[in-house]
Design a binder for these strands. Sequence first.
DNA 1: ATTATAATTGGAATAATTCTTGATTGAGAC
DNA 2: GTCTCAATCAAGAATTATTCCAATTATAAT
Lengths: 142, 142
Amino acid sequence: MVSKTPDQPAEIEIPEEISGLRMTRQRQEVYRILQQDRNHPTANDVFMRVKDRLPNISLATVYNCLEALVQHGIIRQVNFERESSRYCPNLSEHGHFHDATTGIIHDVDFKPGISLADVLQLPPGALIEDVEITLRGKIAVS
Amino acid sequence: MVSKTPDQPAEIEIPEEISGLRMTRQRQEVYRILQQDRNHPTANDVFMRVKDRLPNISLATVYNCLEALVQHGIIRQVNFERESSRYCPNLSEHGHFHDATTGIIHDVDFKPGISLADVLQLPPGALIEDVEITLRGKIAVS
DNA sequence: ATTATAATTGGAATAATTCTTGATTGAGAC
DNA sequence: GTCTCAATCAAGAATTATTCCAATTATAAT
């Protein structure tokens, strides 16, 4: 797995509180990693990386932090089939394309001006709270 | 959980072989239940129901049957968040709306003439093999 | 400083699913 | 009909991601 994170990443300023969530040191570091590693890491991926800065952090805490961030709408949880959940700081409405060849997960945006509700025949009165669009396939080599 | 299955459902004819998969008794009964119970049952739901006809079947066999049917494109596996997988005999391209109030899962079709590839900005060369669209929300009472 | 509240930790527990192994079945050859 | 072989099935053990729990630590409020 290739990481694009530079050795000395520009520090990301993280406020003490986001959306009413107290940003403890652990939550800050977990969030920072998601900002830096855009490859949709799993909880365990985050755990391994966060230990560089917080050697005593536990996996349970990473799960707790991720859950708190998800609950407060600061990050999103992404599921592929029955694999480990992955986490993503991109809050815009978007889907994910999972390249079966490389394992890379690409964010997929809607074409401009299009929303999912425009193209689906939803049950009458349906109020959507959450959407998950996952695509799996290959990228043809040209 | 309410079942809409009548007590004496019309028997469904199931061929001996579908898509090259030998339709054993166990696979037939598992498939029959999916045809009859359109509420997207879990493996365990299927297991409990199939025992009426095959009292000696094991849960592992239900999993094996479901996997074989999925592999051969006879049914689809549907995942919601990290819950148990559910299974669905509707093979047309469609999504699922999970009503958080009732727990009911509704199939959601595309508006006529629209396909997902029309509305997404896919990575160049992407060949989609599988799509999963899951919506979660509530249905407003009018 | 004291108290109350919330967060963290490490390990145990859970639950869905998969794996393993041996028994059974069924289709075709004879 | 029965023999053979591969596929399938059954039962329980194993796995794995995740959650829970109880004890400790940190933070905030008074």
